[in-house]
Amino acid sequence: MMLLIPCPWCGPRDEAEFHYGGQAHVAYPENPAALSDEEWARYLFFRDNPKGAFAERWSHSAGCRRWFNALRDTATNEIHAVYRVGEPRPVTS
């Protein structure tokens, strides 16, 4: 690894400056109380783990301290896109 991660705010920086946050677009449930134990367990513990394109969260913890999302290929580690929190996952071919 030792990626060069393009922080949307600061530009490309070494992976060592970042903190990893796992899968992106996992929203905190609207109303946790309404969820079954199974559904709640899914939110707590189950995350996608694809071999291939993965939308994930990073925080530039030793830089601007901002969270952002990246679309990275977990088979090659290539970063296809970075985008801000709240933006939809970019469509890549």
């Binding site: 903190h19 946050g21 905190y28 925080s59 913890s61 301290r65 969270w67 929190v85 709240g86």
Partner: peptide, 13 residues
């Protein structure tokens, strides 16, 4: 502090 920032920025912007 990281915890607070994470919730603020990613869940409750």
């Amino acid at each position: 502090l990281d915890w607070m920032e994470e919730w603020l920025q990613t869940e409750w912007p």
